[in-house]
């Protein structure tokens, strides 16, 4: 039976873990040469390690990967979406913004169902039709919502028609731009364009002010 101090066995293990200092290694080697019991102990340890390491590397069954893949939870669309949302907060924010913006635009479009037009001294209204009578000259822009415009005289400004038709009499002239908006999409586009224009005007007036 081994009667050597525990320290020797401890050194053996440190040696096997490759953590024994050089001095201690010398000490251990010297002791092993002198003490047979310790030599046997050390030899047994090394043999044990060799045995354990000799166990052959076994391979996973051939269909292993396939069965793992079959058992994986199917990517739920919801999970995928949530992960996507988490990863792209900017896109989500932009989408929400766009949704709300377009929502409010559609409401304004739907709200504007009733007949409306820019008031001007020289125009006549007949039912849902705005008439610029013959010989009259309208100096400013005309905007007509949900109504028609009949031009018999002259319009010097721009004309914008939303959900309406434009009739031109033979003598009628429009000097400015003409814009007719019938559909929701165009209405949206018009809104965006005009808000940009307003922005542009604002910037320009700012520049002028400076």
């Amino acid at each position: 039976m081994n009667t050597c101090p525990d320290k020797v066995v401890h050194m053996m293990h440190d040696y096997l873990d490759e953590e024994l200092s050089q001095e201690n290694e010398k000490e251990l080697k010297q002791h092993l040469q002198e003490c047979e019991a310790c030599r046997t102990h050390f030899h047994e340890l090394k043999r044990t390690i060799a045995f354990v390491q000799s166990t052959s590397h076994i391979q996973a069954p051939s269909n292993f990967t396939k069965s793992v893949m079959n058992k994986l939870p199917k990517e739920k669309k919801k999970v995928g979406m949530e992960r996507w949302f988490k990863k792209h907060p900017m896109i989500v924010a932009a989408a929400v913004f766009f949704l709300l913006m377009s929502g409010s635009l559609f409401t304004t479009w739907n709200d504007g169902k009733e007949f409306a037009f820019t008031k001007s001294e020289n125009i006549v209204v007949d039912g849902q039709t705005v008439i610029v009578p013959q010989g009259e000259i309208v100096e400013e822009d005309i905007v007509v919502h949900n109504g028609d415009l009949r031009v018999e005289g002259e319009v010097k400004g721009d004309v914008t028609l939303i959900n309406g038709k434009r009739y031109m009499a033979g003598a009628g002239t429009i000097t400015g731009d003409i814009e007719e908006i019938d559909q929701a999409f165009e209405w949206l586009w018009y809104n965006i364009k005009s808000s940009f224009q307003e922005l542009g005007d604002l910037v320009q007036s700012d520049e002028k002010n400076e």
């Binding site: 076994i58 391979q59 292993f64 990967t65 793992v68 893949m69 990517e75 995928g80």
Partner: peptide
Amino acid sequence: LKGDQNAYGEIVELYKDKVYHVCY
């Protein structure tokens, strides 16, 4: 992470023997 399950198949293929061996 982007949701490509097939890419996981390759990971399984690379580690299956080691993991199986440890478990065994």
